[in-house]
């Protein structure tokens, strides 16, 4: 373990969390990320490879499609590891890039099922909220940036955006969730 103290994307040593009625927004500081791109003559990586717009959870990792022949692999709780190195071993001959600190990840959970998540989605991003069901992931525009939006479950949504803009993303998420609480 290095003798340096890591900082969360929002600037504090500990991840932030905030609750708005039935919605909870939490900074996920322990999410490891690595991108995998197929090379021309690469063999099939030992990873699930979901199709466009999809997200798959496997045993120890989750994978979502980010572009043609390109995926993002998630390792929950593994941000301190050299995750890209581990994934490279499962994707021999592929182009693997460390992305853990490229993104700030925010997990949003609902205590009241799918409906609050759908209502939040409508205010966040231009995806067809009714059709954006569990197992879907997409990158789309968000407050003049782009973010990955992952529907992990009916009652769970993740938003991943560039780490440097974590504060802007947090503000947008919490402000929107807070307003939904008022009108709920």
């Amino acid at each position: 373990m290095p003798d340096l103290q890591p900082t969360c994307a929002l600037g504090a040593p500990k991840p932030k969390t905030a609750r708005f009625g039935v919605l909870t927004v939490t900074e996920n500081a322990n999410l490891a990320l690595a991108s995998v791109a197929l090379r021309r003559d690469a063999g099939a990586p030992d990873l699930p490879l979901p199709g466009p717009g999809e997200w798959i959870e496997a045993e120890d990792i989750a994978v979502f499609w980010i572009g043609p022949d390109q995926w993002m692999v998630e390792g929950h709780g593994r941000a301190a590891d050299d995750f890209a190195h581990a994934i490279a071993h499962r994707a021999l001959g592929c182009s693997v890039t460390e992305q853990t600190d490229g993104f700030a990840a925010f997990e949003i959970t609902s205590d009241a099922g799918a409906e609050p998540i759908r209502a939040l989605l409508e205010k966040l991003v231009n995806v067809e909220a009714h059709c954006f069901t569990a197992g879907q992931a997409t990158r789309t525009g968000f407050h003049h940036m782009s973010v990955f939006v992952i529907r992990r479950a009916d009652d769970r949504l993740a938003v991943l955006g560039m780490r440097s803009a974590a504060g802007t993303i947090w503000h947008a998420l919490t402000e929107t969730a807070g307003r939904l609480e008022v009108t709920a």
């Binding site: 090379r39 390109q70 890039t97 460390e98 992305q99 853990t100 600190d101 993104f103 780490r163 440097s164």
Partner: peptide, 10 residues
Amino acid sequence: DVQLISTTDA
């Protein structure tokens, strides 16, 4: 055979 990805923030 080339793959690109931005890593500015990483």
